[in-house]
């Protein structure tokens, strides 16, 4: 059992949990992920490692409730324990030798982008950050990103905070202003990463994206996380999750991520009923 030592609500349906797992904490590098099961008989859920604390042996994750599995996770509170917690999985994000980088984060993806930005800053790279959210209620990690970035743009879809627009608008502006990067690192919803990659391709800016296809084991055993990169089949859990955004077949990944839509919808409704009853 893996104890939840702290849980903090970030906004609406997103929260951060710190989980006791000294072995994972010791090994984790930015860009890697874990797989957890909230309870006996729960689904295996992959989540990126947001931060670690070597003194306390804890690993923090940030999740957004999207369906039954994350709802079940969200029903646990500080002091409860997770049934299973395995990691760190996947390859760490490559940061060596990068001198100037633009980190682009979207929504909860920012929680994953932050440790990468911090690592780049610590190794002396020049970091530009663009983070985007739905509206001002969803903005988080802004001051943390500011501390590690030479330049930061905060975007909201409706203009209720920061600038009005998408992260791609801000990125295009920076590129048009003449900024050139060794790499653009984009982490967020699939559609966002697809459009960032399309944009940077025009500007010939190398782009790394963090892919999150449906997974089961996370160790290369099932092949369920496969995607096509440069015409070849890759397993996101062992070869990734980072890939060259200009080579990923995004449309295929987006289509595959909807494979269980009907099942997920039914489960979500069941869980909504179940958890509402528990709350009452």
């Amino acid at each position: 059992m893996y104890k939840i030592v702290a849980k903090t609500r970030l906004f609406g349906n997103a929260a951060k949990m710190e989980i006791l797992s000294p072995l994972v904490a010791k090994k984790a590098k930015p860009g890697q992920f874990i797989i957890l099961r909230a309870k006996e008989n729960s689904e295996r859920i992959p989540l990126t490692i947001h931060d670690v604390n070597l003194d306390t042996g804890t690993v923090s994750i940030v999740y957004q409730v999207v369906g039954a599995g994350t709802m079940e996770l969200d029903s646990l509170i500080s002091g409860d324990s997770l049934c299973d917690f395995v990691g760190p999985l996947g390859m760490p994000t490559k940061t060596e030798g990068l001198k100037k980088v633009c980190v682009v984060g979207g929504g909860v993806g920012c929680a994953i982008a932050y440790p990468v930005a911090r690592k780049l800053h610590e190794q002396g790279s020049e970091v530009h950050t663009i983070i985007g959210f739905r509206n001002k209620d969803f903005v988080f990690l802004e001051s943390e990103f500011s501390n590690v970035s030479g330049l930061i743009r905060v975007m909201t879809d409706d203009g209720s905070y920061g600038r009005h627009g998408l992260v791609t608008d801000a990125l295009k502006e920076l590129l048009d202003e003449g900024h050139r990067y060794d790499e653009v690192i984009a982490i967020g919803p699939l559609v966002m990463m697809k459009f960032v990659s399309a944009l940077t391709k025009k500007y010939e800016q190398k782009t790394t994206v963090s892919m999150n296809p449906i997974m089961v084991d996370g160790t290369g055993m099932c092949g369920g996380c496969r995607l096509t990169v440069n015409g070849e089949i890759k397993f996101a859990c062992v070869d990734g999750p980072d890939f060259d955004g200009h080579q990923v077949d995004f449309d295929e990944v987006i289509s595959r991520s909807r494979m269980y839509e009907d099942f997920e919808k039914r489960k979500r409704e069941e869980s909504c009923r179940l958890f509402k009853q528990e709350v009452k």
Binding site: N41, S42, G224, R256
Partner: peptide, 27 residues
Amino acid sequence: TLKGVYSANEYLTRINLMKAYEKDAST
């Protein structure tokens, strides 16, 4: 990579390890 194509490992893992054949399975 079409939807509905499985490796036997994934198919069997979902069924056996994750008990997807049970009515209220989470997988």
